[in-house]
Amino acid sequence: MPMFCRRNVLSGLFILALGVPAFSNAYQLFVANLILIYVLLAIGLNVLVGYAGQLAFANAAMFGIGAYATALLQVHLSWPFYFAFPAGTLIAMAVGLLISLPALRLSGLYLALSTLAFAQFTQWVFSHWDNLTFGAGGFKSPPISFAPLPVSKPVGLYYLSLIVATCVTLFAQNVVASRIGRAFVSIRDGDVAAQSLGIDLLGHKALAFGISGFTAGLAGGLYSQLLNFVSPEGFDLFQMVIQKATIVVGGLGSITGSVLGAGAIIIILELLREAKGAQEIVFGGVLILFVTFFRRGIVGSLQQHFRGWDEPLHSARPIGSALPSQVRLGEKESLS
């Protein structure tokens, strides 16, 4: 096994992540925590879009629902974070399963459109149901205390995020390497053939939506604590673009790609803060660069140039073969 292989690099990143609070300032710790939250988002979205091939746009909304639910349970019902966080996560997952119901009959652009409509509806609820959500201005959520552990809130939250992100990464890696991951990819690559092998389309699509809702809910709960402030604009369409960018830049259909993509996108966005007004423009340029020249994302490039980066269901592609089918917009299989 070569030194610079997937397993070694991920382990190295994990060890690096363990040490971050020791050598970083408050801002750097914040960014590192944000990266962990986006790792969660990217993994869930990649399972849904990259593996199962469902072109859905509701992830930002589910992220918001996780954040709102966690924070509102604390504010309205005075639940402690340790109950509100799992409850908020389960609520986001339930919503994910709920939106999978219409999605089970739709595909391609129709699915994209209906999930976008759902996201807009969620935005509207966040902004206008003043009694519940405190309206467009947002609200403060109470910071958690890690007492009796001798850690400050930012450090405690960072390690909590690291534990959650690491567990989800390992769990997702195992799931996609199993018959479930193969069922997801078979639905993406040919739903008619998948059914002819006895694979239940509806059940597996619902499962993919449930997984993405679950991880988005986890991310939302942690995010509400990271900012201690929740407002609708954090979960708008631009949020969705950022999340899609993490999986496209990292590599569709790859858990490792989700991790690397989340890190890359957040670091790029933070570096671009210096550029102020140009932030969106440069960010757009980076995305265009990737979809044009690195269509298989960071992981695809690593697989091409280094050994030991192959993953289950995502191995190096021989030079000259067709581009990935990944998400085919609205293209229905013919039945012949």
Binding site: I180, R182, A183, S186, V192
Partner: peptide, 24 residues
């Protein structure tokens, strides 16, 4: 109708879906 994102072996293992039962 081979699944393009998979190796031949992974395609074959997908064929075994209905004979296996591990869950998430």
């Amino acid at each position: 109708r081979l699944f393009r994102g998979m190796t031949v072996l992974e395609n074959m293992m997908t064929g075994l879906h209905r004979r296996t039962d591990s869950n998430i």
